[in-house]
């Protein structure tokens, strides 16, 4: 899932303060699940904003509406009518959702209320961990299901650098496991060490331009 965290309150307030009527659009997808931008968070943020505006004697008004997902056009139809009443939109979706919202209503200024932080997993309630950098050339099959691009601070492909501590931690932090220490451990347990004894040649970085993907079965449908 995509994980987001709310921007600092003052930054959000600064972005929208010159607008009279703002609609804060929540997202029922990933940012709901990571507890950053769902219906509940829309309510909490709006309450905070209203109080601040009231205290400052500003006349801005912020309402909320949550749609099921901001990354899929099917879920925008209800918004179409509602947004007409507003002169600015705040989005609590990930960066993809914010852009999709802005595309849908190009005449409306759109502002992000979250920072999109990573693609990750739930470690526990409210605890998330980055696991994928969407590099478009997955090597997990060779590395025991542990991503060196994401989890090695130097994204190394041929084993650990010289900075692995005695406890198997990364040189950047005593709390961060060394990815290659973990890869070595797992492959050893699986008797697959030969995977990382071979030279891994320089890879191609395919994620340096915007990605577009049409699945094979749909190529015909979208052929120009």
């Amino acid at each position: 899932m995509i994980v987001g965290e709310r921007k600092p309150f003052d930054e959000i307030k600064e972005m929208i303060k010159s607008f009279k009527k703002v609609l804060n659009v929540g997202c029922g997808g990933c940012t709901s699940i990571c507890m950053a931008g769902g219906q509940r968070e829309v309510g909490l943020l709006n309450e905070e904003l209203q109080n601040a505006f009231k205290q400052e004697g500003a006349s801005s008004r912020v309402d909320g509406f949550t749609i099921e997902r901001q990354c899929n056009a099917d879920f925008f139809s209800e918004l179409d009518e509602i947004v007409k009443e507003y002169d600015g939109l705040l989005s609590m979706a990930c960066g993809a959702g914010v852009q999709f919202l802005a595309d849908r209503y190009p005449q409306k200024p759109v502002f992000p209320a979250l920072n999109t932080v990573f693609v990750g997993v739930d470690r526990d309630i409210g605890w998330f961990e980055e696991n994928c950098r969407t590099c478009r050339e997955c090597v997990l099959g060779e590395t025991g299901g542990i991503c060196p691009v994401t989890r090695c601070a130097k994204s190394l492909f041929n084993g650990p650098c010289g900075g692995t501590s005695r406890e198997g931690k990364c040189e950047v932090s005593k709390d961060t496991p060394c990815a290659w220490f973990e890869i070595h451990k797992r492959l050893k347990e699986q008797n697959r060490l030969e995977n990382i004894l071979r030279l891994k040649p320089a890879r191609e970085w395919r994620n340096q331009t915007q990605g577009t993907l049409v699945q094979e079965a749909y190529k015909k449908r979208y052929a120009k």
Binding site: S32, I33, M35, G38, R40, D74, F75, S77, E78, I125
Partner: peptide, 26 residues
Amino acid sequence: IHIPSMIAFARSILRSQDVYPQLDEV
């Protein structure tokens, strides 16, 4: 029949009454 838009609409109505998943309950 576009079923997802019906479910999405039902969710929307529930949301209007503050009925939606509470994701941090245990």
